[in-house]
Design a protein around this nucleic acid. Structure first.
Lengths: 259, 259
DNA sequence: CGCCACTTTGAGTAGTGTCAATGCTGGTGG
DNA sequence: CCACCAGCATTGACACTACTCAAAGTGGCG
């Protein structure tokens, strides 16, 4: 595993644990099919509509994926982060369905269609990994559909801000906001002005505090309560889940109803 | 291939061409891992939040996939049609991220997690097929995101109606509309009343003609022109494409500009 | 026949989009 | 060094889309 010139460990396609039972020479041979590239901020990795020759694995950095309507209206599909794969269209030789633009410096490795096919055919473990990555992105996309279909502007901005926080509700520390108001708007299906108004409103209520390119969440609880995901009463599949705080109100309603 | 009791050909997981080079006995063994089921209209195949034990392949019929916000607002993610796979969450043993409800009588076969894993590990061709299915659904989901983020109510209804037509712009023949106004609204991120108004408007302008549960598109051209996908000028990636009709207007603008 | 679910339509309004003006900041060129 | 400019953000006034609430029409079914 150390006899060749491949040095990458952060890439989903490169990780040794993907190739269980393979000799280290073989692993290195696979690794050598990968092309390393670095993109600087604002640089475009590929354009929507270009023929999809490569599958990209993002090792570090953030990438913005956008698509457009013919008249120029633009939508950000999602922000890709380290560990994700871009350009699955390459597998079936279609065209990229979105434009990928680096937001930060971005380190990727890419693999061309033919090589990818070979690797997948020969290494079931890789296929499984790819399938899992794809299915998680699909699930994520479906959550976005739900949000765009159902949520108000306030809820959209609130859940967007929460999505920037690293999972856990850690201490209210400053984090970087790579997107401009316009880009946030393009991501949330709103206008620049609406986003600006909502953000300004949040700042006035001391829910957030925003500097240039950075942001501090002062009251994550408020955001959660107004992000449309936690309302005291949850309907999940065939289950109705009541938050303790809601229960009293429900009891009153119920006694009234059954009286 | 004919010596066992498997009789299915319409299912992506069952098709013999997926298993090139396998003996017919082996193909039959795989086929025997599949469980056939039939659902009647309005029957629920699985609920959002249930543990995902099975991957479903839809052989015939249409299925509605919905997800909800905790307060009950509901969003239709998409309509699944014959040939598609549902419930990829089963692969990683997660929970279903949506509820699947049959719109018509639906024939499926399902396979449990353990068996699925085995088939995938042993048959690269199956993996590739699954990856392609997934990546197409992801692309479809991304188009939905774009539409919900950017389009007006008229554009949403127009493109929805077009999506019901079988690709080609055939003769204006009657087709079935399985969704109620409420369901169309839940799919398009609108309200029942808005959808009703737009549809009534289309009918008054003789763009469509609607009976109960069916629909005839009289003027597909108008719909295309107002679906946000064809405006004479297209910006695709780094390319600017002008429709001939737009070219004159552009020339005028350009001469003016460079004067 | 009445009931029910679904659809259509109207009136009024809340929430966003549109347009325009202002201020701020960082970069550029004289 | 400063003047200038372009881009970004904020804010206000206003318009308009789509939502809300309400009422009435339609068709199927027991």
């Amino acid at each position: 595993m150390s006899s060749c010139d491949c040095e990458l460990n952060a890439c989903v396609l490169c990780e040794a644990r993907l190739y269980p039972g393979l000799s280290s020479e073989l692993v290195c041979r696979i690794r050598n099919l990968l092309i390393r590239e670095t993109y600087s901020p604002h640089q475009t990795m590929f354009w929507e509509g270009d023929t999809a020759d490569f599958l990209f694995a993002l090792k570090a950095g953030q990438v913005k994926l956008t698509t457009s309507l013919p008249d120029g209206r633009q939508q950000i599909l999602r922000l890709a982060i380290a560990g994700q794969l871009l350009g699955f269209e390459s597998l079936s030789g279609r065209k990229y369905s979105y434009t990928a633009e680096a937001l930060t410096e971005a380190h990727v490795c890419k693999i061309n269609r033919r090589d990818l096919f070979e690797v997948i055919q020969q290494n079931p473990a890789v296929s499984v990994r790819v399938i899992e990555a794809l299915s998680q992105e699909l699930e994520q996309a479906e959550m976005t559909i739900r949000d765009l279909g159902l949520k108000s502007s306030t809820e959209r901005v609130a859940s967007f801000l929460l999505s920037l926080m690293p999972g856990c509700d850690g201490p209210k520390k400053t984090m970087s906001l790579l997107l401009s108001r316009r880009e946030m708007a393009e991501m949330l299906g709103l206008t620049e002005e609406t986003v600006s108004r909502v953000m300004a409103d949040f700042a006035r209520r001391e829910i957030i505090e925003n500097g240039k390119g950075c942001l501090r969440i002062l009251n994550p609880g408020w955001l959660r309560a107004h992000s449309g995901i936690a309302n005291g009463l949850a309907i999940v599949g065939s289950w109705i889940i009541l938050h303790a705080a809601t229960l009293d109100a429900f009891r009153i309603w119920a006694t009234d109803f059954f009286a």
